[in-house]
Simulated scan of single mutants.
Amino acid sequence: MTLESVPDQTSVAALLEPLDHELAPALDRLHARLARQAQELHRLDIAYRVVESPIGRLLLAATEQGILRVAFDLENHDAVLQLLADNVSPRILEAPARLDEAARELDEYFRGTRRAFDLPLDFRLSRGFRLSVLHHLPDIAYGSTESYAQVALAAGSPKAVRAVGTACATNPLPVVVPCHRVVKSDGSFGGYLGGVDAKRTLLALEAAA
């Protein structure tokens, strides 16, 4: 073989591209079958998928009990999945079907046709006062807000304003459990796990409905 006859990297890539297109559907089918088998055999503890939204790509993760985690892109989805594997179960797999309903309800929410989520939730990542705060947040009406002080009072600890801020900042189920509806007493946004722009987008979406 002469030097001139050796294909360059561009030529090799061009030759392999049709093969990649042929293999991709088969690999997708194999992955889907493995996910179904894992779920049927109860060897799948956490299923996950990624959905697109007006506030960026959202990672959704669920156990058989319900939605366990909603994560923003800026949290680093790979890091979030690793934490779930370390702290909940290593039996974790991309299995979109378990999250079809969650994806559908989120799509309806972002299109302005859904005001409340009707999804089973798995709150195991929160406990104590933080969990009390999370249980209260869905009671804040769509399109409305409450101050951190108001949430502290509703959660049973009127002086725990800072703790409410921490509970919102560590909410494992943002959007679905609406910590974006909690603002400062002066009406300013305060912090948000997904960033201030995401919080502004969510509040504007609800105000416009």
Rank of each mutant, 00 (worst) to 15 (best):
E52S: 09
S53G: 01
S53C: 01
P54S: 15
P54Y: 15
P54T: 15
G56M: 02
G56F: 02
G56Y: 04
R57T: 09
R57K: 08
R57Q: 14
L58M: 10
L58T: 03
L58S: 11
L59H: 06
L59W: 06
L60A: 06
A61T: 08
A62V: 15
T63S: 13
T63H: 01
Q65C: 09
G66D: 06
L68A: 07
L68F: 04
L68I: 06
R69E: 06
R69C: 07
V70P: 10
V70D: 06
F72Q: 08
D73E: 15
D73C: 07
E75K: 00
E75V: 00
N76P: 09
D78C: 07
V80E: 11
L81P: 03
L83E: 09
L83P: 00
L84I: 01
D86Y: 10
N87V: 05
N87Y: 03
V88R: 01
V88E: 02
S89G: 04
S89R: 02
S89L: 05
P90V: 09
P90E: 13
P90Y: 08
I92N: 09
I92P: 12
E94C: 03
E94W: 02
P96Y: 08
P96V: 13
P96G: 08
A97V: 05
R98W: 12
R98L: 15
L99M: 05
D100V: 00
D100A: 12
E101S: 07
A103W: 00
R104F: 04
E105Q: 15
D107L: 06
D107T: 03
D107K: 08
E108S: 07
E108P: 00
Y109E: 08
Y109R: 08
G112M: 13
T113G: 02
T113D: 05
R114G: 01
R114P: 00
R114K: 07
R114Y: 02
R115S: 13
A116T: 14
A116V: 07
A116E: 14
A116R: 08
D118H: 10
L119E: 12
P120A: 10
L121T: 01
L121M: 07
D122S: 12
D122H: 02
D122Y: 01
L125E: 08
S126D: 11
R127P: 05
G128A: 04
G128D: 03
G128W: 00
R130A: 15
L131T: 05
L131P: 09
S132G: 15
S132H: 09
V133P: 02
V133T: 07
L134K: 05
H135I: 08
H135D: 12
H136Q: 04
H136I: 01
L137M: 05
L137Y: 02
D139R: 11
A141G: 14
A141L: 09
Y142C: 11
Y142H: 14
G143W: 05
T145C: 14
T145Y: 13
T145F: 15
T145A: 15
E146C: 03
E146W: 06
E146Y: 05
E146K: 11
Y148A: 15
Y148Q: 13
Y148E: 12
A149S: 11
A149E: 13
A149H: 03
Q150I: 07
Q150R: 10
V151R: 03
V151P: 11
V151M: 03
V151D: 12
V151F: 06
A152G: 15
A152C: 12
A152H: 14
A155H: 05
A155C: 04
A160V: 00
A160H: 06
R162T: 00
A163N: 08
A163K: 05
A163R: 07
V164P: 03
V164G: 02
